[in-house]
Nucleic acid binder design. Structure first.
Length: 419
DNA sequence: ATTCCACAGGAATGAACGGAAC
DNA sequence: GTTCCGTTCATTCCTGTGGAAT
């Protein structure tokens, strides 16, 4: 019944996000700096706070994992060295409070977890200090994607904890990883000076570095002579177009490989890459859409219809009446314009839409123009799968049918959704 | 140089909600 | 149950802004 498929992959895991290659391509300088920043840990001194920044997929997390695993290993050689590392990805955590609860849960075992709401702020910090102190020795707290957190109180508290009496036994070091350089500027001065004792900047990968990385992974992942040469080139090109993002390139390579395997192809071709790119984009859209509120969906629908009519870019006051109409169609009170603009700019932040600022001076003032950044067809398809509210889809379908300037055939909804 | 359009976006506030503790 | 607590989504009011028009 089940049969192992060994047609193209030798070790598909080499393309997964958690795979750790033996060597990291093109990050020698950064790793050197990073390593010396971590040296005090081995010396048994107070660890540095370290701040890493650079765009997504430029090896920040990979370098951290690489160095920390070596650090842990080497620390065992010294008996007087007691090292604990707590890594937390802050994606989806919007406040310091949530980070603190997650950290507490990370330190505690399964049976002893706390809820992410309900406690007073200070109680959670108390719990955190207790956990850290209980570890003793050196405690490294790694906060990945820390720019997702909207306030810096946890950073302030952590860096201050050793100064006050909150933590007496342990020496705490914070490693902050940010995709967004402006995050640094928004930190309060106190936090900036303590967290950014050591800063390491990770530049984007060049196209040739991306190719090296892809070859390194492909070597392990695929059997010989499975890849068309152009496949690597193309994957690297897409990653490099999007700010030297290795993660994205590797994901694309894996998607292409999966498509080739599922199609029982003999080798992975550029065609697989192209199809993979579309599928990944669809996935990204879906991901962006799932987090939106009902009104966010309605705003997006309004934008999509403008896109279909070729009316983009549109300014928010043009979106407004159409959005209002959609809202009334599904029996909801339309939001106030200020709030609707928030939703538009949220779409832009998610990368679903793009903004352009325009200024017509005394004649027209400043305003933003929005347009859909994704394929409208894929967007509608993704929303159909994501948004459970049938009424919304129906009203849009009605709209599309009533507006005879638009081709509706390709976007009609399946019967199951229009019950 | 000054004026001023029309919006961007910050800040204060509140309602609704899920959870903890009593 | 009630009282705190933090979060999210919303409203309301407000200040800021860049460049064409004067």
């Amino acid at each position: 019944m089940f049969e192992r498929d060994t047609s193209i992959y030798a070790d598909r895991d080499a393309l997964r996000e958690d795979y750790q290659p033996d060597t990291l391509v093109g990050r020698d300088e950064e790793i050197d700096t990073y390593q010396s920043a971590l040296q005090p840990v081995i010396n048994g001194e107070q660890p540095n706070n370290i701040f890493l920044y650079g765009k997504t997929g430029v090896g920040k997390t990979a370098s951290t994992q690489y160095l920390l695993s070596h650090l842990r290993e080497d620390a065992t050689r010294y008996d007087d060295l007691n090292l604990a590392v707590q890594t937390l990805n802050c994606d989806g955590l919007s406040s310091s409070y949530q980070v603190a609860t997650q950290l507490v849960n990370g330190f505690r075992d399964e049976a002893d977890q706390i809820s992410t709401t309900g406690y007073p702020r200070s109680t959670v910090y108390e719990m955190l200090w207790d956990e850290i102190d209980a570890r003793g020795g050196t405690v490294l707290v790694v906060l990945d994607e820390i720019d997702h957190v909207e306030d810096d109180s946890i950073l302030y508290q952590l860096s201050r904890a050793r100064a006050t009496d909150n933590i007496s036994e342990a020496a705490v070091g914070v490693i902050g990883i940010s995709n967004d350089f402006s995050f640094r500027e928004n930190l309060s001065p106190k936090v900036r000076s303590s967290l950014c004792e050591q800063e390491i900047h990770f530049p984007a990968y060049s196209a040739s570095e991306l190719r090296s990385i892809l070859r390194q992974r492909a070597e392990v992942a695929f059997r010989d002579d499975i890849l068309e040469e152009a496949v690597i080139q193309l994957c690297a090109a897409y990653g490099s177009k999007d700010a030297g993002d290795a993660r994205q390139s590797i994901d694309l390579l894996m998607k292409a490989g999966d498509l080739a395997r599922d199609g029982d192809a003999e080798e992975v071709t550029v065609d697989h890459v192209e199809r993979g790119r579309r599928e990944l984009e669809r996935g990204r859209i879906k991901e962006g859409i799932t987090g939106l509120t009902h009104h966010g969906h309605l705003v997006l629908y309004a934008l999509v219809t403008f896109e279909l009519e070729g009316e983009t870019p549109v300014r928010s006051r043009e979106v407004r009446p159409r959005y209002t109409r959609f809202a009334e169609m599904v029996g909801r009170d339309p939001l106030v314009p200020r709030r609707m603009r928030d939703h538009l700019s949220e779409l832009a932040m998610l990368g679903v839409a793009s903004v352009r600022e325009r200024n017509e001076g005394r004649r027209g003032g400043t305003y933003h123009q929005y347009e859909l950044d994704m394929d409208p067809g894929l967007t509608i398809e993704a929303m159909r799968e994501t948004v459970e509210e049938v009424g919304v889809h129906r009203s849009v379908q009605d709209y599309l049918i009533s507006a005879d300037s638009v081709e509706t055939a390709d976007y009609s909804l399946p019967d199951s959704l229009t019950e």
